[in-house]
Structure formats: C-alpha cells, structure tokens
Simulated assay, not measured.
Amino acid sequence: MGTIVVAPLGRIAELAVRHRCREMLSLVAPKQDFHRPAVISAGRHLILGVNDIAFAGTGNLVAPGEEHVAAIVGFARGWDRQAPLLVHCMMGVSRSPAAALIAALAVAPDQDDHDLAQRLRRASAQATPNVRLVAIGDHVLGRGGKLVAAVKAIGRGADYVGESPFSFSALPESAEP
C-alpha cells in the first residue's frame, strides 16, 4: 500500500478512521495538548515537539534538529505499509509535508526525489514543506542535495485557504502493485 495521509491537527481522528490508519507521526509545538485517535496504538505513535520554524535560536521555540529527523526515519522504517501512515502538524501545510517526504524516502530510498516532490505537489497545491526539516532530512538520508533541490523546484505552495488534508503514495509509481 504505502500511502501517507497528511492532515491538520483538527482532522486527525476523522482521517485516521476513514483511511484505517494504525500509525501516526505528530509534529506539534512542544507541550501541545491533543488526543490520539483511539484507532492509533500508543506504541505506533511518534510525537515530536518542534515548532514550525526554519532557523535555530528563535527565542524559546524548538527548531527541528537531526534527532527529530532521525526519529522520523526510524519510525517510518518500522511502518509495515499495510495501512496508511497518518502524518500531521497543526495545519498540515509545512512540518507534516516535510516529514512525509522524509518518511517516503526512508522506506523507498531508491526513488527519484523530483518525482516524489511532484507527487506531493499534485496531492496538495498548498503544501510548503518546512525547509529546515527538508535540509536536515536530505543530510540524514544522504540525498546529496537532491531532496532540497526537488522541494525548491516545486516552489512554495498556494496561499493557505483552510484545512486541506491529502494523501499520496510513499512509493514510486513503478513500485506500486
């Protein structure tokens, strides 16, 4: 299967049930309170307390770091891909699309970065992956700048018009059954 569902926080319960997700990756502000949907087991839910910022040293905010990306990679590699992976942040526009790209490359590292970024863009006109997460993901996954270039090529997403969850395949089309 290999589908990744990207969502805003306010829609996680609905989308977890609709897509029959069993695993979830949450990128939320540190100490942000929310309820994990009952269909997601605590053992297959990774919560990363990071703010949606591009630079470290921004006041009391927590910038995404290598340890966060390493956790995304490890979590994604433990995903059995039998059910969709739900990835969310507050609005489903920046942190979660970046994490979804990283997760897709973690489970299918032989795929083309530009094709992956294009699949993301076709799925969401407003996705604007967090540049810091993308750059760190590129480094941690040994992409040699290909992921950064691919995300730069799709450009900034359209202006935010409201909650627009989306899904896309983590696997290249040639790898789909």
Rank of each mutant, 00 (worst) to 15 (best):
A108I: 11
R44N: 11
N51L: 00
R119P: 00
F168Y: 06
D80Y: 10
S41Q: 10
V50G: 01
A117N: 02
D115W: 02
T58E: 14
S174V: 08
S41W: 07
F34K: 09
G65R: 05
K146V: 15
V93K: 07
P8W: 01
A99H: 01
R77C: 14
G142Q: 11
S174R: 12
H19S: 14
L9N: 02
R81H: 11
A16R: 00
G57T: 03
N130A: 14
A153M: 05
Q118Y: 03
D138Y: 01
A106K: 00
L9R: 04
V50P: 00
E67P: 08
L46Q: 07
P84G: 06
I4H: 05
H19R: 14
N60F: 14
S164W: 08
D110T: 15
A153L: 05
A106T: 02
A108R: 14
G49D: 13
A83P: 03
G144F: 07
E67D: 15
A103M: 03
R22N: 07
V140Y: 08
E14L: 12
I12F: 01
F168A: 05
R119V: 01
L105K: 02
G92T: 02
V17E: 12
F166S: 02
W79D: 05
Q111D: 09
A7Q: 07
N130M: 12
G142F: 12
R143W: 09
A83Q: 10
A70R: 15
G155C: 06
Q82C: 14
M24H: 09
A54T: 13
A127F: 04
H35K: 13
G49T: 10
V17N: 14
D52E: 09
A13E: 04
L27I: 03
I136E: 00
V28P: 00
A125N: 10
H19L: 11
A108V: 11
A100P: 06
R18N: 11
P109L: 06
A29L: 13
A158D: 11
Q118G: 01
G144I: 12
R121I: 10
V87Q: 04
I102A: 02
C21F: 05
R44A: 09
M90V: 12
A175F: 15
A158S: 13
A149I: 08
A150T: 06
P129F: 07
R22E: 14
A117R: 00
V134M: 03
N51M: 02
D112Q: 06
L25D: 00
G92A: 08
Q32I: 12
A7N: 11
E66V: 12
Y160W: 15
C21I: 06
